[in-house]
Simulated scan of single mutants.
Amino acid sequence: MYTTRNEDGILNNYASEPVMYFAESPSFEQQQNYAFQGAIAFLLVAFTFLTAFAAS
C-alpha cells in the first residue's frame, strides 16, 4: 500500500493496482456449455412461473 502524508499530518492510503490482462474468448465447448446452462435455467424459471400460475 502506498501512503503519503500532507503538510497537516493527514495520511492518504492508496491501494496497489492489480496487473491488468485481456480476457480470452471462450472455446467452442465452453460456449456450448453456457448455452446448455442457459436453456436449463430458462426451463427452471418457466416451470416455476407455470407452477405459480397453476396454484393461484
Rank of each mutant, 00 (worst) to 15 (best):
T3L: 07
T3R: 12
T3D: 05
T3Q: 14
T4R: 11
T4V: 10
R5Y: 08
N6I: 00
E7Y: 15
D8V: 08
I10V: 15
I10Q: 14
L11W: 04
N13A: 10
Y14T: 12
A15D: 11
S16V: 12
S16E: 15
E17P: 05
E17Y: 06
E17T: 13
E17Q: 13
P18G: 04
P18V: 02
V19P: 03
M20I: 12
M20F: 13
F22I: 08
A23K: 14
E24D: 09
E24C: 05
S25C: 04
S25N: 14
E29I: 08
Q30H: 07
Q31L: 12
Q31A: 04
Q32R: 14
A35I: 09
A35W: 05
Q37E: 12
Q37Y: 09
G38T: 05
I40C: 08
F42R: 06
F42W: 11
L43T: 07
L43E: 05
V45D: 02
V45Q: 01
V45E: 03
F47I: 07
F47D: 07
T48I: 11
T48A: 15
T48F: 12
L50N: 07
L50K: 01
T51H: 04
A52Q: 01
A52V: 04
F53Q: 00
F53L: 06
A54R: 07
S56H: 10
S56W: 14
S56V: 13
